[in-house]
Design a protein around this nucleic acid. Sequence first.
DNA 1: AATTTGAAATTGTCAAACATTTGAATGTTT
DNA 2: AAACATTCAAATGTTTGACAATTTCAAATT
Lengths: 252, 252
Amino acid sequence: MPNPHDPQAADAAPPSAGHQIAESIRALILSGKLVVDERLPGEQELAARFGVSRPTVREALKRLAAQNLIRTRRGAAGGNFVNRISWSEAHDQLVCIATLLLTMAPIGAETVTEARQALLGACVPLAAARRRAEHLAAMRAEIAVQRDPATTDEAFCASDVRFHRALIDAAGNPLLSFQMAAVIEAIQPLLNMITYRRRDRAAIASRHEAIFTLLEMRDARGIAGELQALSDYTARLIGEAQALRTRRGGRT
Amino acid sequence: MPNPHDPQAADAAPPSAGHQIAESIRALILSGKLVVDERLPGEQELAARFGVSRPTVREALKRLAAQNLIRTRRGAAGGNFVNRISWSEAHDQLVCIATLLLTMAPIGAETVTEARQALLGACVPLAAARRRAEHLAAMRAEIAVQRDPATTDEAFCASDVRFHRALIDAAGNPLLSFQMAAVIEAIQPLLNMITYRRRDRAAIASRHEAIFTLLEMRDARGIAGELQALSDYTARLIGEAQALRTRRGGRT
DNA sequence: AATTTGAAATTGTCAAACATTTGAATGTTT
DNA sequence: AAACATTCAAATGTTTGACAATTTCAAATT
């Protein structure tokens, strides 16, 4: 039962000292009590303040560093500083989480394609209104790659990701680009693994070309229709793949 | 210029041993070479295998634990195991990242409201088609809270979040709910802090009531229009607030 | 005045030991 | 023989102490 909001997380292991210290510092950062670029006390002072040893406090700091909440510098004026998270770091973290969810959680392919379709559709009107020449150029380049018979399957998938990325970036909203990164870079490869066969490429490239032309004309409705067709096409491929797998004998 | 894809992340500090070890194990997990619930070698063996000491390997493991990639159990049959990430853990991480981005990155209020509006709009058709009685009930309860004069500002904001959450959950797609969590739980409070005043509450509650009625009738177009109106209203409030702040004297 | 040198501060890493927790093997009793 | 209590071993949690590497700053020197 994939309950999205599970209150008790199975085992109630008592959190370690390092975990608790990391949590308390994390709360200070998230609530804004520790400002960006502010320096935390040194490891020895933190250890004294929390009543633990230095390695313990170090573990807490490493936990925070793993979440990009702090950055660490050695040397005389070094120390641990509250980090201003960058777009690329946030992007990487989001893709990581989304990938984990998709590979480990019991999510059906229909759910995935539906979410992808819905979210892409949210970007289309903005993209049609704001697309610039650079976005069109990027998409055209990717279509050329996808049309090239010499392109490997992996390269085709990567190009597919970049194509959709250009479409999203055309919306000109960095927050949307950030959100959609999870959709494109985590969902898309998963779908590709399931469905892509060599003879599907031409059809997909044609759909992409249609989207390109419609985006050039700023026809949001048309793009939405093409995306829907592309999504339906993918859904059909998934259905066929699943039918094959079922016939070949059950799960896993 | 908030470039979403910043190649060089400022300083090129040489990654520490703990960081590198964590990265290599992380890659194994993300690529699926380490399966869920698989046990990692013990700390001593890992230390020997990577040619470092146990504290160093421990730091690497703590980094992974901070990302919910592994879970740790003490005792005889204990050790570090690849963790199956839960929806709530993923949810918390996403909200954390989104909150950090919104509070620290230079994002304009227009960008935020636009993204929120676009993504909410993506959920509306699905929600209209699939809403069940429980979603309507949840929304009705929140409207009652928002209508109550005894509700504090903070409680009103929280209720607002829950209202939108119910609308999203009505779409019946856990992936969408996951994605939108960032929008609702990170963006919404930020907007609330900027704009909400006591006399605006009635207007907002009325909008919510209209959305509720339209969702009951499964009128997707109508909901989209109401959401747009709500967004415009919010944008206007933000504009006024910013004008006030500018007149009162500059930034911060 | 510019350069070099060195000292100080801070994190990075290691080593060894002890504490705590947990599961399983072992022994004892009924 | 079965059920229960005890002990033991394995693994992580934590501490102490020390040394290495790195960076900054200031003093000394040319």
